[in-house]
Structure formats: structure tokens, C-alpha cells
């Protein structure tokens, strides 16, 4: 766990103001009814608020003859729905899983892109942190890329994981679905089933750490580059981060779709 120690060291020096503010864990701004409110959570809420306001505006202006913005959204929704229907080979299944897959995509895209807004990091928040008996003032950024918080990516991973398992059980039945993993017809089938089962569980880790790793790395890279050359070098990297934010949202959604497809297939 060497890297964690390094991150901890960075975290410890960050409060002194000199070093890079790199944290593996989210920073707690305060508590609300005993629930910890972190800066990543706040970013997620900001992203949600922006998305919800946009869709409410869109909804109120929806017309049979579309404007430009409506056309783009329609294209996105229509294309995605048709693609999902094509992959799942069923319009009925597509109608069931489209909201889930599309929300995963939109939510991750929104939190990734909101975090790229320049200057957002400059908004800071001073809080009193208690270290045992003594308390110290700590200045932390109010908004931090939400996907650079494992809590948030783990939540997405759990949602995707349970959606996939439930899709399998509901579509082909409990016993048929679990025969994919616990098959006693032959030793080979049993071994393959167990491997399948482990890889199924491993998705939780791969889902959450893929998104976390990409966004955390991007954030860290920009911080490091800003440290060395603050003026021009971060620009292409920030553009790249916008691309990465899209790609990660896309990958998360598309993998959920493909795993749902695998889950609803009848076992051979």
C-alpha cells in the first residue's frame, strides 16, 4: 500500500498550502443531520441541478417541430434508444433498461464536465477540523471532481451491478440465471461457472476503479502540469480531460448495456 502512503503524505502537506492538493479520499465540508457532506457530493449535486434545469427547460419547450437544442437531444435519445434496442434485440427490454443506461451516461458525463469548468476549483471553503483534542482551520475546495471519489464511482458500480443481476434473474428466471454460475452437469462446466461468478463480482471493482482511476489521474495530471507550467500546457490536457470525461461515461454506460445483454441471454 505504498501509493496510499504517498497520497497520505501529500494530503498532510496540502493543508500547509505549499504542496499539490491531491487526495484519494474526498474532503468533508461539514455534516448535515449527521451525514457527511463532501466536496465531491456537492459537485454531484451541482451537476444534477444543471442537468435537471436543462431538461425542465427542454420539456417546457418541446415541440413537434424541433429547435436546434431539441434536435440534438432528440438525436441523442433516439439514437441511444435504437442502439440499445438493437443490442438487446428487443424493444421491450430496451424500454426497461434505457432509463438506467442513459442516466448512467448523462450523470457521469455531467459530473465529469462540470468538474472541468475552469475556476471552479478556486472556490474554497474554510472549515474547522478537529484533530483529536485540538482543532485547526482547514481550507478546502468547495467543488472537486465527483468521479475522483471512490464513494461515488462505487455507487455507480453497485447500481450497474445490481441492475445487471436483476435483469438476468427477471428476464430468464432465478434458477436458469444461477445455473450460469453453479452448473453441476460436468466438472468443466462447474469450473467455468465459478470463474464466471468471480468475474461477475470483479465487475464491481473494475467498474468503480476504472472511472475513479481515469478521473483521478486526469485531475492529478492537470494539477502537476499546473505546478510546472501554469499558462499554456494545461489547455490541451483540459481538452483531453473533456474527452476522457465523455469516454468514461460512454464506457460505463455501454459496459452496463453489454453486461445486461450477457445476463439476459439464455445459458447454453
Amino acid at each position: 500500500m505504498g501509493f496510499i502512503a504517498v497520497a497520505h503524505a501529500a494530503e498532510n502537506t496540502a493543508s500547509e498550502g505549499a504542496a499539490l492538493p491531491i487526495h484519494l479520499s474526498p474532503e468533508i465540508l461539514g455534516h448535515f443531520f449527521g451525514l457527511p457532506i463532501t466536496n465531491t457530493l456537492l459537485t454531484a449535486w451541482l451537476a444534477m441541478a444543471i442537468v435537471i434545469i436543462l431538461v425542465i427547460i427542454l420539456r417546457s419547450k418541446l415541440a413537434l417541430r424541433p429547435g436546434r437544442f431539441q434536435l440534438i437531444v432528440e438525436e441523442l435519445i433516439g439514437f441511444s434508444f435504437n442502439y440499445i434496442a438493437e443490442v438487446l434485440e428487443s424493444k421491450k427490454l430496451a424500454r426497461q433498461y434505457f432509463p438506467l443506461i442513459m442516466t448512467i451516461f448523462i450523470f457521469i458525463l455531467a459530473i465529469n464536465w462540470v468538474a472541468q469548468v475552469p475556476g471552479l476549483e478556486a472556490i474554497t471553503f474554510t472549515t474547522v477540523v478537529e484533530h483529536g483534542s485540538e482543532s485547526a482551520k482547514d481550507t478546502i475546495t468547495l467543488f472537486h471532481p465527483a468521479a475522483a471519489d471512490l464513494n461515488i464511482t462505487l455507487a455507480f458500480a453497485l447500481i450497474a451491478f445490481f441492475a445487471i443481476e436483476i435483469a438476468g434473474v427477471v428476464t430468464i428466471g432465478f434458477f436458469k440465471y444461477f445455473r450460469k454460475f453453479f452448473n453441476f452437469s460436468s466438472p468443466l462446466a462447474f469450473a467455468i461457472g465459478i470463474i464466471e461468478f468471480i468475474s461477475e463480482l470483479a465487475r464491481l471493482i473494475s467498474f468503480s476503479f476504472r472511472l475513479f482511476g481515469n478521473i483521478f489521474a486526469g485531475k492529478t495530471l492537470i494539477l502537476v502540469v499546473l505546478f510546472f507550467l501554469p499558462y499554456f500546457l494545461p489547455v490541451p490536457l483540459m481538452a483531453f480531460e473533456i474527452f476522457v470525461g465523455f469516454i468514461q461515461a460512454f464506457i460505463f454506460a455501454i459496459l452496463t448495456l453489454f453486461f445486461i445483454k450477457l445476463a439476459v441471454e439464455e445459458p447454453h
Partner: peptide, 10 residues
Amino acid sequence: NAFGLDTRLV
């Protein structure tokens, strides 16, 4: 602890 995992946050 390193990742600040908290079931409430999840």
C-alpha cells in the same frame, strides 16, 4: 480509510 469510503456517502 485511504479512499475515504463511507457507506453513508455511497
